[in-house]
Structure formats: structure tokens, C-alpha cells
């Protein structure tokens, strides 16, 4: 039996969530006395791939091209490798690719699939993981009963652990051809912090009062190197694009630091942010429910507080 971890570089590099996934795979392989295999799908330099060895990736297969196009074909690729290496546990990130491939892969391998798992399994025999239900209102323990198991890991729920090994890197060849999906156009910005991978998120709600007031929020985000986000009313009103909507029906995020600015904290919004490590709320209403979800709160008018806060963090950053 072996453990297979699937990761993708982004813009040629690996971020913290990739290292976390390798660390996670290493820990599970160690606990189940299995061998860890890593499949890297995407363009990256050999040096970047070799860095994965810091976290325990000893056996790496590298598909050095970016080509995820057709979920069916991509899941075929992973299934093929899983069979060759006799993978008992397959670990994928809970991101766009992981979520797209894992369910199809589960059917191909008749494997039980636990998505958005939190941290390390609580038991290996039976294989039991922790997972949220009811959008964070419940925490469940779930047993994966099949011999092959697939999990996608919620970001920032395990952490990065160094286990320096000397990796063996092998080229992996797979040519994806799709007869089913045709790409018409692609519009991708590079160099942007992805909301779902961001360490810090600065998010605005209706309390921001209008799209014209977003500049100070963007300034704060820039100072902190953060991604920007918003609550549902803000995206529904068209103040901000829908891909920035964080909450139950929007994106579920798990940054280490989340700023909720002028967000009252409806239960649907909390469902999208309750995996954040630390939440800072600013609201003029001291009774706003966001304060019962937040770790730190500031009560007052955003138009005054926001620029001041940006200045404080700017000074703070330059002082470090």
C-alpha cells in the first residue's frame, strides 16, 4: 500500500498549501507504514520540485506541463498512477482541481471520498476523518469504509512540517487529449493572490456604504499583501465582482487572518469564514453578530478607522 499526494504548482512555484499537503501525506504514510508518492502536475523548475523534499516528498513524479482541461481525462491520469503504485490513500488539495477530479476518481477506483477534511485522521483503523457539515455548524467524524480512500484537505488545517529527505524526481508523461471539452478563451491574471489560498484576506460588507469607498480597503490589502473579498450583499449589489463573494454560497476561505470590515456577520457569511485562524472585525454597531465570531474587534466608523489602520500596518511592516 502507498500514499499518493497530488499537487500543482501555480505560476511555476509551490505555495504553502502544497507544502502542507506533502507534510500531511508524509505524516499519514509514516503512520500507516506506507510509501509516499507525490504527483506534481504542472510546469515548474526542477529546483522548485526538489524543494518538496524538505517536507518529506521522497518519490516525485513530475508532469512538467500545465494542461488540466477535462476532469474525466485528468482523473484517468491519477487513477492510472494510483493503480500502478497501489495507492491506498490519495490526497488532493481542496481547491478547484482537487474538487473537480476527486469525485470522478472515486468512481473510477470505487473509493470512498471525504472532501474538505480537517487535519489528520483521528484513526486509521477504521480510517476516520474529521469534516464539517451544515456549512460549519457541525463537526463530524466520518469513516471511509473502502480499501482505497480519497481525501481532499482543507487548507491550513494541518500545517507545514519539515522532514528533509533527498527526493527522487522522475518525469511523468501523460498527454491529455479531450474530445469532449473545447476551450474557447482564457482570461487569467498572473501574480494575483488567490482568495482561496490567501494568508490574509481583507473583506468588506454593506457597511462600506458603496463601491466608491473600496480604495482604502484595497490600500490596506496592499500593505498586508492580502487578497480582497466581500460579503454577499456587496456582490449582489454589483459593488464588487461575484468571485470575491465569501460566504455560504460564495467562497469558503481559510486564511490565517481575516478582516471583516463593515460586515454584520450573517450566519451565511460566517459559514464562509469560520475556518479562519484569526478574525478581526470593524463595525460601527457594537451589537453586530460578527463580534461574536471575531477574535479582535474595533467599534467605529470605517471611513475614519480604515485609513488609520492602513497607516498603522504600514508603519508596522516597515518597522519589522
Amino acid at each position: 500500500m502507498s500514499v499518493l499526494v497530488y499537487i500543482e504548482p501555480r505560476e511555476g512555484k509551490f505555495n504553502k498549501s502544497a507544502f502542507e499537503l506533502i507534510s500531511y501525506g508524509y505524516t499519514i504514510a509514516d503512520a500507516t507504514k506506507s510509501k509516499l508518492h507525490v504527483l506534481v502536475a504542472g510546469e515548474a523548475s526542477r529546483e522548485a520540485v526538489a524543494e518538496l523534499g524538505h517536507y518529506g516528498a521522497s518519490e516525485i513524479r513530475h508532469l512538467n506541463k500545465t494542461q488540466h482541461l477535462d476532469d474525466s481525462v485528468s482523473s484517468n491520469m491519477v487513477a492510472g498512477l494510483a493503480e500502478i503504485i497501489n495507492a491506498g490513500i490519495i490526497i488532493m488539495p481542496h481547491n478547484l482541481t482537487g474538487r473537480a477530479i476527486a469525485p470522478r476518481l472515486a468512481v473510477k477506483l470505487k473509493a470512498g471520498y471525504a472532501s474538505a477534511v480537517i487535519g489528520i485522521p483521528v484513526s486509521y483503523e477504521p480510517f476516520t476523518v474529521i469534516k464539517k457539515a451544515f456549512s460549519g455548524k457541525s463537526i463530524t467524524k466520518q469513516v471511509v469504509k473502502t480499501s482505497v480512500k480519497i481525501v481532499t484537505l482543507s487548507q491550513n488545517t494541518f500545517g507545514v512540517i519539515e522532514n528533509v529527505v533527498q527526493p527522487v524526481i522522475e518525469d511523468f508523461n501523460f498527454t491529455e487529449t479531450s474530445h469532449s471539452i473545447e476551450v474557447l478563451s482564457t482570461d487569467v491574471q498572473t501574480g494575483k493572490v488567490l482568495l482561496t489560498e490567501a494568508e490574509i484576506i481583507v473583506s468588506g460588507g454593506r457597511g462600506m456604504r458603496g463601491p466608491e469607498n473600496w480604495k482604502p480597503l484595497e490600500d490596506l490589502a496592499e500593505v498586508l499583501g492580502a487578497a480582497t473579498a466581500c460579503s454577499r450583499p456587496v456582490s449582489d449589489e454589483g459593488w464588487r465582482p461575484h468571485h470575491e463573494h465569501v460566504g455560504q454560497t460564495g467562497k469558503v476561505v481559510a486564511p490565517t487572518l481575516y478582516f471583516a470590515l463593515g460586515i454584520s456577520g450573517a450566519i451565511q457569511h460566517l459559514a464562509g469564514i469560520n475556518s479562519s485562524k484569526v478574525i478581526v472585525a470593524v463595525n460601527k454597531d457594537p451589537e453586530a453578530p460578527i463580534f461574536s465570531a471575531a477574535d479582535y474587534g474595533v467599534v467605529g466608523d470605517l471611513q475614519i478607522i480604515l485609513p488609520r489602520m492602513t497607516e498603522v500596518f504600514r508603519k508596522y511592516k516597515s518597522g519589522i
Binding site: 474538487r99 469525485p103 472515486a106 474538505a116 464539517k132 455560504q248
Partner: peptide, 15 residues
């Protein structure tokens, strides 16, 4: 919004 499994669509397509 109950079990948050992100599973049924992909599984159904494969089946």
C-alpha cells in the same frame, strides 16, 4: 449545504 460533500456532480458524470 447539509453534508458539504462536493461529490455528487462529479460522481454522477463518471457513472
Amino acid at each position: 449545504s447539509d453534508y458539504n460533500n462536493w461529490s455528487v456532480g462529479g460522481m454522477l458524470a463518471e457513472m
